[in-house]
Simulated assay, not measured.
Amino acid sequence: MSRPDTFVPPPGARAYALRTARGEFAVVDAPVAEGVEAKGVVLLLPGFTGSKEDFNALHVPLAGRGYRTVAVDGRGQFESDGPDADESAYTQGELAADVLAQAAALGEPVHLLGHSFGGQVARAAVLRDRTPFRSLTLMSSGPARISDAQRERVRLLRDTLAVLTMAQVWDAMREMDAPEQTGTPAPGDAPGVQEDMRRRWMGTKPAQLLAAGRQLATEPDRVAELAAVPLPFHVVSGASDDTWPVPLLDDMAKRLGARRTVIAGTGHSPNTERPLETADALAGFWDAVGEARS
């Protein structure tokens, strides 16, 4: 659902295929800034209809704070391969196993962040095995299923994908939906960004969209289960969100005993709407985790 300003990796970052025990995944990997003390590695998971590029604006400010950031396309998202029609390849359990493999390939415990749908996948990975992770940040990702209005949007997308091609669905979304809801281009977007957004949509596997939509619409509340995991938690959101209402996110943070951050002036995607403020909040949390461990 995020709309990055550019699909070009920032200076110093590298786009490549990360090899794992469960196959290759497309990543953008940004090292710690030169002359800055390295504090840790962060694994970033995008949301529904999103991609690794949703975090492009976070890499440079986080590198300056001492964090190597690795943003990944999940199985079937944009430039990571996956089956076109087999939804069983995209169950939450399969995606969680992918995340554990990605963390293992990075070679050290990582700070894990999931945006929206990526937060549900991140939660599932932590519940399966917490040991590869130093902390968990849930960004604009709620305790259970999405709101009624968003479930209706997902149902419409599923119905449409059953009868139209991906290209036809893209054209229909651009005509019918607001850009901030679909991730489709806004009228003022640069032509290159519009083409990249379309390329991302066309690269995403239909089965991944169908499976992810089903999970978003049916996810149970697992907050109590997650709260029992001995990890530091951070709940981040914008000041408004129609996917999971902000009071619901506030309550989730209390139930988790988590740090709570609201990025003023943003909605569902603070990572793209106000990346500098978001990066500062994220790094502050990870710094505190590091200080507590020392």
Results as ranks from 00 to 15, higher is better:
residue 178 A to G: 08
residue 260 R to A: 03
residue 110 V to L: 04
residue 248 L to W: 02
residue 284 G to F: 06
residue 167 A to L: 01
residue 102 Q to K: 00
residue 229 V to R: 05
residue 114 G to S: 05
residue 87 E to L: 15
residue 281 A to C: 10
residue 188 G to V: 00
residue 272 T to R: 06
residue 276 L to R: 13
residue 93 G to T: 04
residue 280 D to S: 11
residue 264 A to R: 13
residue 92 Q to M: 15
residue 237 S to P: 02
residue 105 A to H: 10
residue 76 G to P: 05
residue 234 H to S: 09
residue 129 D to F: 03
residue 5 D to V: 12
residue 20 T to N: 03
residue 165 T to E: 01
residue 106 L to M: 08
residue 30 A to M: 08
residue 103 A to W: 10
residue 241 D to P: 08
residue 175 E to A: 14
residue 14 R to T: 04
residue 267 G to Y: 12
residue 87 E to T: 15
residue 182 T to V: 00
residue 82 G to N: 14
residue 266 T to S: 14
residue 264 A to Q: 13
residue 43 L to C: 07
residue 283 A to M: 09
residue 212 A to H: 09
residue 265 G to M: 13
residue 87 E to F: 14
residue 117 F to C: 00
residue 70 V to A: 07
residue 163 V to W: 07
residue 260 R to G: 12
residue 158 R to D: 11
residue 225 E to P: 02
residue 89 A to S: 13
residue 186 A to T: 06
residue 246 V to R: 04
residue 185 P to L: 01
residue 22 R to Q: 09
residue 249 L to E: 01
residue 71 A to G: 07
residue 111 H to M: 07
residue 151 R to L: 12
residue 17 A to R: 04
residue 186 A to P: 04
residue 23 G to E: 08
residue 21 A to D: 11
residue 170 W to H: 05
residue 48 F to R: 04
residue 82 G to R: 03
residue 217 A to S: 15
residue 19 R to L: 09
residue 248 L to A: 09
residue 191 P to T: 08
residue 202 M to F: 11
residue 280 D to P: 00
residue 239 A to E: 15
residue 180 E to T: 09
residue 4 P to C: 03
residue 38 A to G: 15
residue 63 A to G: 11
residue 109 P to I: 09
residue 62 L to Q: 07
residue 111 H to Y: 12
residue 86 D to E: 15
residue 241 D to A: 09
residue 140 S to H: 11
residue 151 R to S: 13
residue 230 P to R: 11
residue 239 A to S: 13
residue 278 T to Q: 05
residue 201 W to M: 13
residue 164 L to E: 13
residue 84 D to S: 13
residue 285 F to G: 04
residue 9 P to T: 04
residue 28 V to Y: 03
residue 40 G to V: 02
residue 100 L to M: 06
residue 49 T to M: 12
residue 102 Q to S: 02
residue 205 K to R: 15
residue 13 A to R: 03
residue 180 E to S: 10
residue 257 G to Q: 03
residue 86 D to W: 10
residue 229 V to E: 04
residue 259 R to V: 14
residue 255 R to D: 06
residue 286 W to M: 12
residue 195 E to F: 02
residue 199 R to A: 14
residue 58 L to V: 08
residue 218 T to Y: 00
residue 238 G to Y: 11
residue 262 V to S: 07
residue 33 A to I: 00
residue 92 Q to S: 15
residue 131 T to D: 12
residue 64 G to H: 10
